[in-house]
Write a protein that binds this DNA or RNA. Structure first.
Lengths: 242, 242
DNA sequence: GCAAAAGTGTTCACATTACACCCATGG
DNA sequence: CCATGGGTGTAATGTGAACACTTTTGC
């Protein structure tokens, strides 16, 4: 065991020459979740590395030397989807020695939520594809582990904060919202209790519009009340639990 | 804006030469929480960098080239406290370009929980000091931001999992446990409801021992029932909420 | 008129909260 | 005997879960 209280030069306490220790590459990987046809999907790209032939990879890239870590994740998202102002949040950093065949690459995972319908046209001429989460069994690198971690975070987070609306169009029915909760959490919810609960949060704006072209009685359409949520957040924590 | 679907060589998709891009140093910083005299404390070390004269720094170090990120955090803890098998968990990675004056250093923050009483002797001959959390206003680097993030995680996590026992001695009274919850969460709890709640979790083992040397009626002593918690975890998620 | 989902209230079980009195010990 | 916290129970309130029928639309 190393001696307690050793006084070796330390990056936090003493001026140290760092040049010889810039030996790492740092990347970010984005788990971009989308929702379509009652399926939670993830945007993936084909991996051309011989080690991972025919496997899928997350969208990621090396962080640039003069680029903040968070900025890098937004850059990936922008370069790959053309989108700005999308929900994006750091989840975890993966730094096992052998996680990347090219060398020592530490990667920080982010997850992002967006509405596939609104953005699908921007994905033309691309190697990118939406994959139903359920169908993803193996991936390149340690990306399955990263995906699992981000999915777990997503499941937890939608019960704490109303981030789920990022996956829906601006206008949605209560049924769509409930289905999305059920899909992500992998549970079944009582329709009446769900409605009650959502309405008491006051986070929904009734648009006085109805669904169209549905083979049944059309439901009302709602939108997420961003302004009201911002107000609530100022005062107290907002939770959504089932 | 960068073109969507650009096909520039990418670390996740194509074989790339990395050597020229190993331009980062990677460190870990540990926020080591302890509890003593009804105060939540943090183990800090003096920073000798001229930029941060007389400021305090977290315990951290560069990750070694052949060392897993998680392993590095355990090493810091072992080197600084002599402790093994202490609760330690990753919180967040901080990677702003200018966060470290020596160059581009990405740091991953971990937090750790330990019982000060049981371990204080190992801190002799050391620059380390326990600081009451309340007294820490400024720190070196972005360490105050890191500390705040870890504290927020701690507050949240003790309401989800029984990690709080890591801060207490093996034997503790219900009052000590309640005080600790109150201290960390910065709330006041009803004593009777607290007892009921804790007992219903079945996580406490009644040791049939009493406090000694207290200037009032001695309370019973309990220990955390690790075995029972492990059993519960197998079956379902265990939550502790107030 | 049939299928499919919208919309709506009540009851019950359980969990949380609020709250007051006597007890044991040290000084 | 006094100060300090230990130990206990109950009533009220709030929350989550279970549950059935009528309505509206497309076909």
């Amino acid at each position: 065991m190393t001696l307690v209280g050793g006084t070796a030069p330390n990056i936090n306490t003493s001026p140290v020459q760092l040049e010889s220790r810039f030996q790492f590459a740092v990347s970010v990987d984005c788990v971009i979740f989308g929702y379509e046809n009652n399926m939670l999907k993830v945007l993936l790209i084909n991996c051309d590395l011989p080690e991972f032939k025919d496997r899928w990879s997350l969208l990621g890239d090396l962080v640039l030397p003069d680029e903040d870590l968070d900025k890098a994740s937004y850059r990936i998202l922008r370069e790959r989807t053309g989108l700005e102002n999308v929900f994006l949040e750091q989840v975890h950093t993966f730094g096992d020695v052998k996680r990347h065949p090219a060398g020592r690459v530490i990667t920080t995972a982010y997850y992002s939520l967006l509405n596939i319908r609104d953005h699908q046209l921007k994905l033309l001429n691309n190697d990118l594809h939406w994959h139903p989460l359920k169908d993803i069994a193996t991936m390149a690198f340690d990306h399955k582990k990263i995906l699992d971690a981000c999915y777990a975070t997503l499941q937890k987070k939608i019960q704490e904060e109303p981030i789920i609306f990022n996956l829906l169009a601006n206008k949605f029915s209560l049924r769509e919202l409930q289905l999305l909760y059920e899909t992500i959490l992998n549970v079944e919810l009582d329709r009446r209790n769900f409605r009650k609960k959502l309405f008491t949060t006051n986070l929904l704006t009734d648009l006085d519009e109805m669904e169209a072209n549905v083979p049944h009685r059309p439901g009302k359409l709602y939108s997420f009340n961003h302004a009201h949520y911002a107000e609530m957040k100022k005062k107290h924590f907002v939770g959504i639990d089932f």
